[in-house]
Design a protein around this nucleic acid. Sequence first.
DNA 1: CCTTCGTTTAACAATTTTGTTAAACATAAA
DNA 2: TTTATGTTTAACAAAATTGTTAAACGAAGG
Lengths: 226, 226
Amino acid sequence: MGIPEVQTESLIKDTAKALFFQKGVLNATTQEIADEAGVNRALIHYYFRSRELLVDTLLEEAVNEKRDRIRSILASERPFREKILLYIDAVVDQGLKYPHLENFIITETARHPDKMKILCPKDRVKSSDMIRKDLDEEIQKGLIQPVSAEHFIINLLSLCNYPLLAKTVVQNMHGMSDTAYRKFLQDRKDIIYQTLFNETAPGILRKEEHSAEVHSIKKTAEQKKE
Amino acid sequence: MGIPEVQTESLIKDTAKALFFQKGVLNATTQEIADEAGVNRALIHYYFRSRELLVDTLLEEAVNEKRDRIRSILASERPFREKILLYIDAVVDQGLKYPHLENFIITETARHPDKMKILCPKDRVKSSDMIRKDLDEEIQKGLIQPVSAEHFIINLLSLCNYPLLAKTVVQNMHGMSDTAYRKFLQDRKDIIYQTLFNETAPGILRKEEHSAEVHSIKKTAEQKKE
DNA sequence: CCTTCGTTTAACAATTTTGTTAAACATAAA
DNA sequence: TTTATGTTTAACAAAATTGTTAAACGAAGG
């Protein structure tokens, strides 16, 4: 049978992701996608039937990936504050890689709220429930102000995602170059933690920025147990 | 001369705003706009030359309005924390009225970063400079954790705007109805203040939700001076 | 070698969308 | 009433965009 040089279907998907999530062409044409992928436009219809179905596929993968990321961090066995640190790191780093992913999700789910419902069955455990116990403990100890798990999560999402979403606004408001903006986002990781917990973030995590992740974090975990 | 029944130009603009900012049809067609306004499509080109120029006009007005709103609050003579409270109130309330305004600005400025530069001349006083003195005072008194004015402003913007931008995401994540969502946003006003200042927001403001604004706030100002 | 079948292509058709234009219209002024 | 001018309309043209289809292609299997 005719075997494609590469897996055309995923080539198209990857190209579309690059266009939508990285370059920010949220209304990229089937022609643009095909050109960028170096394939015939008809192939998009061959594999996905229509532009909309391709977009649906991208949305589904993006949402699932994002949700799994949150859950795997929140479900881990680390101390609460470390989970949050990890999450901040993950979101900001991913935001730098795919600057328009969040905007894509927001725009698309705003246009078709039903799709979101299909993607997120309500029988699942809510992420707010996953932190409620830890959070209430923090509150009871008087470490942070009383706040519902629902609001706390949205605080976290807001502080992480908005600066990514509103890149141009932020840059312009503060007169920042692209590199200044990137540094700003790196600095923000600590600021977000500090804003949520009203306490300077443990620096150890950031020392070896590039190499270690899990290792240094695990160490921090032990240290914090005290 | 031929005088229109209403000012057609502003009718078109207002209709477009309703479509873009309220209904969230960020890619509304000239035909859709014309239909919604009940005018001939050609009039859009007569008054604005092209769809893009109409969009530019909307963007400019939206950005200016939003910026003026921030500045007039920050420039007022109230105590710092009251300004912030006022700002939170203003943004959330406006966000409920024009749910897609922020998304419009973000999407449009992401597509054409240059337009943003034109709209915001850099010789203007930065809004971060307008709060730096007050903020540093708070920090020095040990009332809040050390944070740059730049980050503090983005914290504020993030906490206010993201839940509006990501309505569907938030709603779905917490399984909220539309009314539950609206209540959530109202509650958030206090949460945002509390998150920024690590202290419960003075309740007086919210008691008489509908009638007073400036009056009750002024009172609070006096009370806080102590 | 030739058939088969999944893949790919080019060409076509239909629809949508934007932009233009000449003529119709309405009112104020002459 | 006529004229002049700004406004509105319908009709047209052009471009962009999506979706379909029949034919070409190319390797695997007989």
